[in-house]
Computed example of a mutant assay.
Amino acid sequence: LESPYQVTTVCFNDTGEQVISGGIDNEIKIWDVRKQQQVMHRLRGHTDTITGVSLSPDGSYLLSNSVDNTLRIWDIRPYAPGERCVKIFQGHQHNFEKNLLRCSWSPDGSKISAGSADRHVYIWDTTSRRILYKLPGHNGSVNDVDFHPKEPVMLSASSDKTLYLGEIED
């Protein structure tokens, strides 16, 4: 699969028949693996490089992070009506380092998280869009985050060369 611009993040859909990519052209592309080179959908809305994509646990939604300082949730179901961007989240920050800050879903899909250049881990409620947690501790940009599959624990990785495990209320 060839993209006209540099690709910075990828993931599979839940069936493995599609590849989802984001890059420096500010656009998310959904590719059909069976019909190589075919872009099925282009998700537009971000205004800067996309640094992370993550598929929701049920496979219906995509979370994206961008240098434009927004996280977006997109409806990627096959027959989604009209506008596919269903929610926008803010609070975390990118900066001059232009690190590839990643994002993730909680196992039940009720929360999302993203790293931030302000050295915090941000966790939002997907329904209300409220920031539930702004976890401190790192001394550098938080580049990647993940929720434990069973326990109320966050994992974060930072430019400060540390990994943190932090407990959150479930």
Rank of each mutant, 00 (worst) to 15 (best):
S3P: 02
S3Q: 15
V7T: 13
T8I: 05
V10H: 00
D14Y: 03
T15M: 07
E17S: 08
Q18D: 09
V19E: 11
S21K: 03
S21T: 13
G22K: 04
G23Y: 09
I24V: 15
I28D: 01
I28Y: 03
K29T: 06
D32K: 15
R34V: 00
K35S: 07
K35H: 12
Q36H: 09
V39M: 05
H41V: 04
R42N: 15
G45N: 10
T49M: 10
T49P: 02
S54W: 01
S54V: 02
L55N: 01
D58Y: 00
D58C: 01
G59Q: 07
G59P: 04
L62C: 06
N69S: 14
T70P: 00
R72C: 12
R77Y: 00
P78M: 05
G91A: 08
G91I: 13
H92A: 12
Q93S: 14
Q93I: 12
E97C: 03
K98A: 08
R102N: 06
C103Y: 02
S104L: 03
P107R: 05
P107T: 02
D108G: 04
I112N: 00
S113R: 04
A114E: 02
D118V: 06
H120C: 08
W124S: 02
W124A: 00
R129F: 00
R129T: 13
Y133Q: 03
K134C: 11
G137R: 05
G137T: 06
H138C: 12
S141D: 14
S141T: 13
S141K: 02
V142S: 01
D144I: 02
F147P: 03
K150L: 10
P152F: 12
P152C: 14
V153Q: 09
S156C: 06
S156R: 09
A157F: 11
A157T: 11
D160K: 05
D160A: 09
T162H: 08
T162S: 14
Y164N: 15
L165T: 02
G166T: 11
E167R: 13
E167T: 07
I168D: 00
E169D: 14
E169I: 08
